[in-house]
Design a protein around this nucleic acid. Sequence first.
DNA 1: GTCTATATGGCGATAGAC
DNA 2: GTCTATCGCCATATAGAC
Lengths: 193, 193
Amino acid sequence: MGTVEWVETVERLIRSTQELLWERGYVGTSPKAIQAAAEAGQGSMYHHFAGKAELARAAIERSGAELTEAAEQELAGPGTATERIVRYLRRDREVLRGCRMGRLTADPDVMADPALRAPVAEAFGRIRARLADIIAEGKRDGEFPAGLDPVATAAAVAAVLQGGYVLARAAGEDDPFELAVQGLVHLLEGVSA
Amino acid sequence: MGTVEWVETVERLIRSTQELLWERGYVGTSPKAIQAAAEAGQGSMYHHFAGKAELARAAIERSGAELTEAAEQELAGPGTATERIVRYLRRDREVLRGCRMGRLTADPDVMADPALRAPVAEAFGRIRARLADIIAEGKRDGEFPAGLDPVATAAAVAAVLQGGYVLARAAGEDDPFELAVQGLVHLLEGVSA
DNA sequence: GTCTATATGGCGATAGAC
DNA sequence: GTCTATCGCCATATAGAC
């Protein structure tokens, strides 16, 4: 049993935990369910991780990194500030599954544990900062009016996404998400015109 | 033991469930915790409600009614369309506690049970429709440009609130919520000018 | 209507064999 | 590294006395 199998078991544990946290949250995810999803035994899991919290920490950090990287993919490409933001907003998403990070803010045990909340805070902090940079750039280029607040506008953009997920899940269909994005894009284009 | 005590026990059970669902969600709320919070015994709870799901149903329906009524309070008052929407957005909120309804969309058991999800869907449906009415009104009065889509804009407004809660909880402070609202209000005023 | 007793099963973890 | 056994506790009721 070389390093390969070791890494693969840990990887399966982390990825299974990511999926379960996404679907059922921290409170709703049991070590047993993780083991079943990862096809790993009880002993195996507790050998690699001290417990549920430590495994969740690894999974949340991984998800945070993936999320910010995905955002960077859309935001770093070519185009005007508006085009890049719209591309990010309209990216293909599994709307009804919700946001893997945003979902965790509903979990009291995650919010109460600094080690679990920190990666969530960091992911959203990075994305909001990146959006604010792009909007500030758009201002410099005369694309947005001088009076536009980049930080506040960036928060609104991020909030529309997170809120769009919430409204869509409540409705049981994608529409509210798409509508909210459409409404925001329209407003953004309105002030740019 | 007349009707008074009976009603009071049921009331305490419902209200305690509302609080616990808000704080810990459906999965994280146990009948035992509800009984403790309501100062009601095991037998008492199961006498009035068939089980956790039925009690949750009553609590969610109550919360939905309270939420739509509160929204109506802000939205029905005097002022222009923009003023009424801004008043609704800026209403005093316990930001870090999140939205009692929005929170439930993260709960897989709530989403999976039509009886539990329906009141959530209805509450958001009502609020979005009411916002769309007001925006349509503002269009008729020349307050908003003719090109503005009331339904999409309403979805964006509702999404900013829900997303603002998520961002604020992630950050552990109110700021992102306030910023998102500020960003949206600025955009709304921008297109109205 | 409310109480206590009881039941089944899952949670989250530890222990020690292999 | 992984397995099985075991643990104490809680979840979600049900049963029947009072």
